[in-house]
Design a protein around this nucleic acid. Structure first.
Lengths: 197, 197
DNA sequence: CAAGAAAAATAGACCCGGTCAAACTTAAAC
DNA sequence: GTTTAAGTTTGACCGGGTCTATTTTTCTTG
């Protein structure tokens, strides 16, 4: 028995809450929805919500940690490549596979707008960025590892912003993705420069 | 009449509150002190505290915006220098003038410890970093300005961490400051690389 | 100097995110 | 079917932060 009734219900409840919450957030904006609103709409108590999600922001960023997970796995299975090259190659692969195009479609633009509209959510993105940086440091060669990790994360954020901005201006998702790739290429150069010292 | 009783009292009250608050924070830790504690100790009401300081964190970071101010003035009066060189020169000047040494003395180490011990304060430092980045962008040459600003801020943060870490390990403030300067030099190289593309 | 305008401080109620303790419900294990 | 443990709920509580109405204080002007 891999999954009893208990486990199943937990998974369902969690998914239910997250889904309901996301819907409400898009309808009314993050700050205008209280946790109790979410709880009521999900047919559950406020405590239960906080039982599944540590912070209110996690209701939205639930699968955002997948990004950190991907980062980790790329660095873990990089063979003889340097961390920098492995990351660059992964980005190229993503852009080539076109799966990244959906990153800059309309739905993600409104997601971005939602995030930008809430101080708490913006703060959470910053926190996630710092976490990514810290988890990156051990995979980089010793001198200046902290700086290099910071540069990479700064580059990722800048690339993301550039892509979203391009998409916001009505350019195609493909062009937006290309913009992301370009900024990341520049970032790679900068990171290498930082690594040499 | 440049300053009536009204202005003077405002200034005094504000200083009083900030001072009392800082003392309490160092005594008991940021999260263990409530705003009402601060208000009571300052002989004032809670509302008055929030009247002078928008957020609780501002009670501690009151003069932290001086840094942003310095940044602004350096960039404004840089003559023909590039923004990057102007910033590098300012850092050199600070380190040479030894005024930066006090940045890594014991009192600032405990300040740092205080900040690191509180999620709210750490979040605020991240917010300040992003604000600094955004205020930097307009002063940089066009292509990749956003990325370059991000690199500079990442470098500044990394340098600061490096200096504090050196100080924490018992090295002299002078050596810690030299460490900061070294990281910033590397950052300059990386930023230049990012600028060229 | 007196009286009213303007600014600032106060008390108090209120909202929301988040935590805690204790009781209750439900599924698991025997 | 009874015990045991996990999960949920309720309700109280705390602290940051906002709002309103009231009072105190300073400034101004006649």
């Amino acid at each position: 028995m891999d999954e009893g009734v208990r486990e199943r219900k937990k998974r369902e409840t969690r998914a239910q809450i997250s889904e309901v919450a996301t819907t409400l957030f898009f309808e009314r904006g993050f700050d205008a929805v209280t946790v109790e609103d979410v709880a009521r709409a999900a047919g559950v108590s406020k405590m239960t919500v906080f039982n599944y999600f540590l912070r209110k922001e996690d209701l939205l960023f639930d699968r955002e940690s997948e990004g950190v997970e991907l980062l980790r796995s790329v660095l873990a299975n990089r063979g003889k490549k340097s961390a920098l090259v492995a990351l660059r190659d992964e980005v190229r692969r993503l852009v080539a596979s076109e799966s990244v195009f959906t990153t800059f479609d309309h739905s993600v633009l409104s997601f971005w707008k939602l995030v930008q509209g809430s101080p708490a959510l913006r703060a959470r993105t910053r926190e996630l960025a710092d976490e990514a940086r810290d988890s990156l440091v051990p995979h980089l060669e010793r001198p200046n590892a902290d700086l290099v990790a910071g540069v990479i994360v700064a580059g990722w954020r800048a690339g993301y912003r550039a892509g979203l901005e391009a998409a916001r201006q009505g350019r195609s998702a493909k062009k937006a993705a290309a913009e992301l790739e370009r900024v990341l290429d520049v970032t790679l150069v900068a990171a290498r420069a930082a690594m040499r010292g």
